[in-house]
Amino acid sequence: MHMARTLSMALCALSLTLSPMAAQAQPSSKSQSSKDASVPPIAVERTDEGEPVIVHEGEASFYGGSFHGKKTASGERFDQNKPTAASRELPLGSKVTVTNQDNGKSVDVIVNDRGPYVDGRVIDLSKKAAKQLDMIEDGVAPVRVEAKPSEQPTEAVKEKVEAKAEKADKTQVAEQPASEKKGNGAARSGSSRADQQSGSGSDR
């Protein structure tokens, strides 16, 4: 009887010791991560012709196979064999160029979903797109995402990208010191892309 009581108490103590570890092992819920995850701000650069280009730099990841066939934010079914992506900042339907900054490889994708909801991540790619960037083995990669109004598939999406660029451009100019604003004013009249580049700013 005494041994049974001792064994029972030992088991209770063990369960209390393990329970915090079990709680820590549980992943955070999607609602928590979507609210708390921070996304790097987008920036606006200009081509030699003066066209605004939305630029988003940070980490890229890619969808797991379990998402294949599930509905995306655009209403389409996710297909891991098509060059698509999820972005929290860029308009749905927009065509963007993603460049792996580790190896210089690029891929064009269509944004048809929202995400990723992880700190520092700017885009979630389909498996096909991730393969073209040669990032399957690592799982994540530092990338540069670019969206040009002139390269959009429809006039409606072009207008959305232009509006997004205009809003981001105003935000980043407002956040710059007065001395930089004067410099940018002169740069916008020049022809050098490097001179025309603006600083980063948040569009949220």
Rank of each mutant, 00 (worst) to 15 (best):
G139S: 05
I110V: 13
A60H: 03
G64C: 05
S126M: 08
S66G: 05
H56G: 09
Q176D: 13
G50T: 07
E162V: 10
M1F: 12
G190W: 06
L11I: 15
S192F: 06
K167S: 13
G199A: 12
E180R: 02
R88P: 04
H56T: 09
E76G: 09
K35A: 15
S38Y: 02
E137T: 14
T84R: 15
T171L: 11
Q24L: 03
K131V: 08
V143G: 03
A174R: 12
T97M: 05
G50P: 03
P149Q: 05
N81D: 14
P116Y: 05
L11D: 07
H2G: 09
S94Q: 04
V111S: 01
L16A: 13
G64Q: 14
M135H: 08
S106E: 07
S31G: 06
K105C: 06
V44F: 10
P149T: 04
P41S: 10
P83T: 12
L125S: 00
G50I: 04
H2P: 08
V161Q: 03
Q176V: 01
M135S: 06
K105D: 00
G201L: 01
I123G: 11
G64Y: 14
A37R: 01
M135E: 01
D48N: 12
Q196M: 15
G58C: 05
T47P: 14
P52T: 06
D113P: 11
D119Y: 02
I123E: 02
V53T: 04
L11C: 10
A156S: 15
R188A: 11
E146K: 05
T99P: 01
K167I: 07
Q197V: 02
E175G: 07
A186V: 05
V98G: 00
S202E: 02
T6F: 14
V53H: 07
E155L: 06
E57M: 13
A25Q: 01
G183E: 06
A141Y: 09
R5P: 01
A85V: 12
K105E: 08
Y117R: 00
T47H: 13
R204I: 06
N184C: 07
L18Y: 12
E155V: 09
P177D: 00
C12N: 11
F67D: 10
E89T: 14
K170Q: 15
T99Q: 04
E180D: 07
G93C: 08
K181H: 00
A147T: 00
E76K: 13
R121N: 05
Q176F: 03
V39I: 15
A13K: 02
P91H: 10
S15A: 15
R193G: 15
G58A: 01
E89N: 09
E49F: 06
S192L: 06
S38M: 10
G115E: 01
A141N: 09
P153R: 06
